Amino acid sequence: MQRREWLKLTIGTLATGVLAGLRPDVAEAKADAEAAAAMVIDTPLDAVAWHAARRYLKLPQGRIAYVERGAGAVALFLHGFPLNGFQWRGALERLSPYRRCMAPDFLGLGYTQVTEGQSAAPDAQVEMLIAFLDTLDIGQVDVVANDSGGAVAQLLLVRYPQRVRTLLLTNCDAEIDCPPPALKPVIELARKGQFVAQWLTPWLADHVLARSPQGLGGMTFTYPQNPSGEAIDMYLRPLVEHPDQTHAYALGLDANVLAGVEATLKQRNTPTRIIWGTGDTIFSAESPGYLDKTFGNSQGVRRVPDAKLFFPEEFPDLIAEEARRLWGV
């Protein structure tokens, strides 16, 4: 029997067994587990496949959109701004044979439908993730995070250390750089209700502009052909359609949400690895060294020459390599 047939059979059997023993409400939330398992090896996660695989979990905070692939121990992938879980499609393809990989969309971003009046600040994102995990009866997770998702990951480790098995951080906030100065114009435009209209709507309409030095691509992607047309549409369309939620997310990043976490992070013994793109112009070049010294069980820093903020989307093999080393698989 070929390895990929064996993996499908094994994962499908595990999914069936798990479903049989779940509470009815949890079983309903996991009803598509076998179908997801069957996709583990062979189905590329392009936009069509991602839309087809998307599920929703109803929580007090809203209907949380997420995609999962694989079985077994859970890995939780936290995306950046203004992206969504689609950022991690390449990592899910490569890592789903080793983990049950889950990529939710944050409150205020992507396809998550937010309850009216619900905060989208990082503190609220942490509580949403805990409710997400609790509802699905998931205990510990391996966390992989980028950009503002990295700030949420650090808060998760500070407040719920027992839930984080390992932490793989890419370019993101640190207490000494939160929010980064480059984000201030975005926050000010969001405060005026103009960020979507002045930045995101033109990028969605003109992909050449979106990839230009003044666009999402030029500012945050390493290669000039990125993001792809389907990625631009996947990321920006839901934000343009719901500008108030998008602005609420941006305004939630105004304060230094990591103020005071250094002492606690030094006490945490969670294995943590940092991968940092050196071409990033958003976050401080001092941050990876600071984070390396701050985490109580840092496994060091890997620097990726010339890579910009959203390099995890462009270098999924590197993410998979580092994640497997950290996970010991």
Rank of each mutant, 00 (worst) to 15 (best):
M1R: 14
Q2Y: 08
R4T: 11
R4D: 13
T16D: 12
L19F: 02
A20D: 09
R23N: 14
A31E: 14
D32T: 05
A37H: 03
T43C: 00
L45M: 14
A47D: 11
V48F: 03
W50P: 12
R55S: 15
L59H: 05
Q61M: 14
G62W: 01
G62M: 01
A73D: 10
V74F: 00
A75V: 03
A75H: 01
A75M: 00
G85H: 02
Q87W: 07
G90Q: 07
R94V: 08
R99G: 08
G108F: 06
T112I: 04
S119C: 08
D137A: 13
V141R: 05
V141E: 06
N146I: 15
G149S: 10
L156R: 04
L168H: 14
P179M: 11
K184I: 14
P185N: 11
E188C: 10
A190H: 09
A190T: 01
R191N: 15
Q194P: 09
A197I: 07
P202C: 13
A205V: 10
Q214L: 14
P224S: 06
S228E: 08
A231C: 03
D233A: 14
M234S: 05
E241A: 15
P243T: 00
Q267Y: 04
R268I: 07
R268F: 01
N269T: 05
T278V: 02
D280S: 01
S287F: 01
L291W: 00
G296F: 01
S298H: 06
Q299T: 01
D306N: 15
A307S: 06
F310P: 05
I319M: 15
A320P: 00
